[in-house]
Design a protein around this nucleic acid. Structure first.
Ligand SMILES: [Zn+2]
Ligand SMILES: [Zn+2]
Ligand SMILES: [Zn+2]
Ligand SMILES: [Zn+2]
Lengths: 174, 174
DNA sequence: ACAATCCCGTTATACTATAACAGGACGGAG
DNA sequence: CTCCGTCCTGTTATAGTATAACGGGATTGT
């Protein structure tokens, strides 16, 4: 029971525009439902985060917002991020201090991430079995779980095969 | 298959001095074995991290080192931390920007943490079954795992029962 | 003694995040 | 519609986390 959402830039068959659009629609529906206000800056922040193919730092996002005429002081972006985090529309990748659009905002879930050290692409998964197992283990300690930060780093398939190809080429030359 | 190392300040039966001492001995043995130099500042940094009952921020550690006559500029502490992290003697808790002595430095392992939001105590676990499961899932994506950040936050048993007691007292008063 | 390497001191700077207060927009009650 | 309370935003200042870059001193093996 795992679902992935992967959006590398170079995956041509992936229509990322559609992806962004659908995320925005979900966001609007969710906010409406919960009586939350998806204001201009919040909406645009979410869109910019989604448009990026990798997690976006707060100040990178701030710069983009500033370019478009939004206020350029840090609180602007952190307020938007707080809102989006609270609404479950984005996740923070703690090990990168960066923010990522959530692909399953419409249903409660825990976000687990596979982060490539090389290309910095991130895949989000929802491993219910591991989640259940963690809850169980925590409970055995009398610990009541509130949040999970699960970030796995390494080499993605693309970068791995690229690396192996490079190594092979070097060997052939010698 | 899980092992815990828990060292809350208020657990009277726990001889933390012994704990620190043994961690230091392990560290010296490991460094000797690997031809690494556990210099004064590194050694003292490790000791200070262990003496703290919760994860220590870099600048908190720096302040303690400075009190003892070590240089008080940031690179001092970050160099020591980098060394200790590299040697596997401490872990970084990403969601707190803080550092924690590792209780199993002598054997390869992945550190998973249970972090109490209330008292900020941290327990480290070594869940081999979850580790295996994660490696397996990653491999199915063609992803080669290098590091895992698993940080679970919530309420520890102590704080939970304290909270429930407080709630009960409030109810009795009414 | 010498060279190579590693470690440390020092200064400056980059990056990440929040505090605090004032003013403006919005939405509901009357 | 108007008033009021609340939520949102603008603005300035500051706190907290981490690294760059350069030079000098200690350590180790030759
Ligand atoms: Zn998600
Ligand atoms: Zn990659
Ligand atoms: Zn450990
Ligand atoms: Zn606690």
């Amino acid at each position: 029971m795992s679902e992935k959402h992967n959006h590398p830039k170079d995956e041509e068959h992936h229509d990322h525009d559609h992806c962004v659009e659908s995320a925005l629609q979900t966001a609007e529906a969710l906010c409406l439902e919960q009586g939350q206000r998806l204001t201009k800056v919040r909406r645009r922040a979410l869109e910019l985060i989604w448009e990026s193919h990798r997690p976006l730092g707060a100040y990178q996002l701030l710069a983009k917002l500033a370019e478009e005429g939004f206020n350029s002081a840090p609180p602007t972006v952190y307020r938007a991020l707080d809102f989006l985090l609270g609404a479950g529309l984005i996740h923070k990748v703690e090990s990168m201090n960066a923010y990522l659009g959530c692909a399953h905002a419409d249903r409660a879930h825990k976000g687990y991430f596979l982060i490539c050290d090389e290309c910095h692409n991130v895949m989000e998964f929802d491993y219910q079995d591991i989640h259940a197992s963690l809850i169980d283990k925590a409970k055995k300690q009398g610990f009541e779980l509130r949040a999970e930060t699960i970030e796995l780093t390494g080499l993605c398939a693309t970068c791995k095969s690229a690396g192996e190809a490079a190594k092979k080429a070097a060997k052939d030359k010698s």
